[in-house]
Design a protein around this nucleic acid. Structure first.
Lengths: 354, 354
DNA sequence: CTTAGCACTCGAAGGGCTTGAGTGCTAAGA
DNA sequence: TCTTAGCACTCAAGCCCTTCGAGTGCTAAG
């Protein structure tokens, strides 16, 4: 059941206006801003129909109308047209992002910050899900007796490291022996397949006392497992307070409280991502569609970036339901493309990126 | 000019009450909560005096009284008594922090998060100022052709690393040669003394073509310099919205906007720290005393933690002027002690920390 | 110097009125 | 059958007024 021509245009105009003004849209003011060949009375009839159909809501009888969740849904699904980014905007984003290269973390932070700044909403960036990537290298570097830097290099070209403690009577040579054994035993295994068991069997022939070995093994194990942790970068939450919908502190508090539990947001993104379409698709969740408590006054726009064939992460924008979807989508897509390019170049060769 | 006995007690009681209730303090309610041997009339006279002297303010004639910045100043300088932490509180903090060890970054993040959670205000943690620490090791580890992990080990036991690109025809052997030369040339130099010049002269005898050398040098240089960057971790800003003083969105927005420019906050902390007292001292900045735009409705409590003899960083708490100073100070001090212990143990030997 | 007593102040809360933006309905016209 | 002019109706927002009471400052007596 989709909308017939005129209603469609009217709904589109209403959502457009409301996104711009944040005021309930009245029949007359709609007429004054769009060249409909209609009287306000007809418009009112249509608007009344649209309300009946569930696309609009009325804050109270003598007010204009506001899109409902269903109205926004129709809008993003089939009414809005995605803006093309202006060269200026594109350049700004490009500049912000290209300062960082090679460090995934920094890349995501910059991307997130650029995205928030450009859209004026809150942005999020989730590190890639690495469980299915496999181990390419594992080096353990003695910093000083008892202190070791474990460097984990993954197939996706991602490098993670962790500083750990080991017994300080372990010599650099012994350490080298153990770490080489671990590396050889685990190389090519995906992160999800690496367990304390696999790691233990990898070093069974090493001529080092078990008591020492065990601690080193364990530290190597936690370092590897840590590489698999999802991290979430959130940027620009302060911008929410400039929006009229969050003049109400309690509404704002809801959102801030949720954002502060970044584990929950990360989990939600991760879960959502499973049900995602093909790469390059964006996904929009509106109001009640967000099954994350506290964000029911918001919309959440996400997309997926690629590190590798199977390895993906997410970026997204959180804003009011009355967000400028078309702007957000186009900017987010542009950022995604930039991330993809950066990561691709990173794994192969550096070139100018544009 | 300091206060005489009775006035002192009255001011103290007023500030205490106001901190607890967030309501202007009236003569009668003050009497009901404190066993003064006085009538409300006398109390009123005294309160009127205290207002004259600038310690109190009246929102309007028929309201109670509220401490002025000067009143808070007197309170924190000579009236409040610092609580002892309860065992339960201490344990909670200890637990939160001791999960992380050895990684400075993680330690600070945990400390900051614990501090915010315990106080209910916003916490900040600034990484140490490392300019005067000197280079102990510099390793360059080839991840794959063209991609190198630069590991910088500093005297304070701090380890930083950075992933960089180099020309991909550089072999592991050449890289090793260069990095060893750099390390030998720069070892013992403090970060502030390391420049492109010193680093260049360190490798002048290396048998590698200058064109290649230069790029490697430059990357090593930026990696070293990056170790010197101050980073600020802010935690718990959402908690502000629960406080009655920030029911007003514009006030909250002021603070959030300032906090979002973490470079500014870091700079302020850094600058402030120079004028700091001996270690272990806390510093309190109240309202207008904070020369950082946007925080004039807040108080800022800071202290200094030690990494090494000369190397220090800061942690702090930002809250309303009506903050529970005594609780904040005791909790912040406890966190500082924990950080110090962790870092000391880190540089020497791990033991149980309590 | 203290205190009981009292007049005074002023914000907060509530009621009632007005205003006007906006709707829904009706009946006539295309 | 759809459109539209016209009109009655609704209801939040803004304003004024009143009431209420918490709290003060002052005065005069102890």
């Amino acid at each position: 059941m989709t909308l017939e021509g005129r209603k469609k245009h009217i709904l589109q105009a209403i959502v457009d206006d409301y996104i711009e003004t944040a005021e309930p849209v009245a029949s007359k003011s709609l007429l004054s801003r769009h060249p409909f060949n209609l009287s306000s009375a007809t418009l009112r009839n249509e608007m009344s129909d649209l309300e009946q159909l569930g696309y609009l809501e009325q804050p109270h009888t003598s007010a204009g109308r506001v899109p409902s969740d269903k109205g926004y849904r129709e809008y993003v699904d089939s009414l809005m047209r995605i803006d093309q980014l202006s060269d200026v905007q594109a350049d700004e984003i490009r500049q912000r992002i290209s300062t960082s290269f090679s460090e995934l973390t920094q890349l995501l932070k910059n991307a997130s910050s650029a995205l928030s700044e450009q859209t004026g909403y809150v942005s999020v960036a989730l590190t890639p899900r690495l469980r299915s990537s496999y181990l390419k290298q594992l080096k353990m570097m003695m910093i000083e007796p008892g202190k070791v830097l474990v460097v984990v290099v993954l197939s996706a070209g991602v490098v993670k490291d962790k500083l750990v403690r080991i017994p300080d009577y372990l010599t650099a040579e012994q350490l080298f022996e153990v770490s080489t054994a671990i590396e050889q035993g685990l190389c090519g295994l995906s992160l999800e397949d690496i367990t304390l068991v696999t790691i233990t069997s990898a070093v069974k022939d090493t001529p080092i006392p078990d008591s020492i070995l065990n601690q080193v093994l364990f530290e190597a194990y936690t370092a590897i497992k840590q590489a698999d942790h999802l991290e979430l970068y959130i940027d620009g939450s302060h911008r929410l307070l400039s929006l009229p919908e969050f003049r109400d502190v309690d509404r704002a508090k809801n959102v801030f409280d949720t954002l502060s539990r970044d584990g929950m947001v990360a989990g939600y993104l991760d879960e959502l991502s499973g049900r995602n379409g093909p790469d390059g698709t964006y996904m929009i969740r509106i109001g009640q569609e967000i099954t994350l408590q506290g964000l029911s006054d918001c919309s959440f726009v996400t997309t997926t970036y690629n590190v590798d064939d199977k390895i993906v992460g997410n970026i997204g924008v959180i804003g009011p339901k009355r967000m400028d979807y078309s702007k957000v989508v186009s900017q987010m897509n542009f950022v995604r493309v930039l991330i993809d390019k950066h990561l691709k170049n990173d794994n192969n060769r550096m070139e100018d990126i544009g």
